[in-house]
């Protein structure tokens, strides 16, 4: 889960330097074109050639300005996503903590439950906690019993269910869409 999340934010981040590099090259090209056009104009060599140069210079300048604007928007979106991710992570942790307390899990069970929800297999959990697999299996059974579920799958569904409810309230499935669908138009 963590790995996937990091790559998602990094993908957005990695595009920004590319756009910035293009903007920088455009800016350098624009300056050379403007200098060239300025000298030609002061030399009084009016003509189609200069007109073309001025147009290209203006187009490059517009490209620079738009590129810079785009960069800022991408940067702000990436920043917002990162913050949203942090908040979501915090929310998941909060829900988990409150449920674990509600179910009266012991410290050891809490740890096992966390590993299980993160997707660790029983042998992995045993390895991480340096206990026998049988112990972990027994702890998992205790956790399922306290949570009122019968499998690991059902356990994670409990949290997913909570999150999906929260999400639809906040309109993640259609940002800006009206809360009640249907009668638009």
């Amino acid at each position: 889960m963590t790995n996937g999340a990091i790559t998602t934010t990094q993908r957005g981040d990695r595009r920004i330097p590319v756009v910035v590099a293009i903007v920088v090259v455009q800016a350098i090209a624009a300056v050379f074109f403007i200098a060239d056009a300025a000298v030609d104009i002061t030399a009084g060599e009016w003509g189609l050639h200069i007109l073309a140069e001025v147009l290209i210079a203006l187009a490059l300048l517009a490209g620079v300005a738009l590129g810079a604007w785009q960069t800022r928007r991408m940067f702000e979106t990436a920043h917002r996503n990162e913050q949203a991710l942090q908040i979501a992570r915090g929310a998941v942790a909060e829900i988990m903590a409150s449920r674990f307390i509600e179910w009266r899990l012991t410290d050891a069970e809490t740890e096992v439950a966390l590993f299980a929800l993160k997707g660790c297999e029983t042998p992995e959990i045993a390895d991480l906690r340096q206990v026998a697999e049988g112990t972990v299996r027994a702890q998992l059974t205790a956790i399922y019993a306290k949570a009122g579920v019968s499998s690991r799958h059902a356990l994670s569904s409990l949290f997913l269910e909570d999150l999906i409810e929260v999400s639809t309230d906040k309109g993640i499935f259609g940002k800006g869409a009206p809360p009640e669908g249907g009668d638009a138009n």
């Binding site: 300056v31 620079v64 810079a68 800022r72």
Partner: peptide, 15 residues
Amino acid sequence: AALLALRILWGFIGT
């Protein structure tokens, strides 16, 4: 000149 101009532009519309 280009780098400086771009940085100054960024000083107005940047992050």
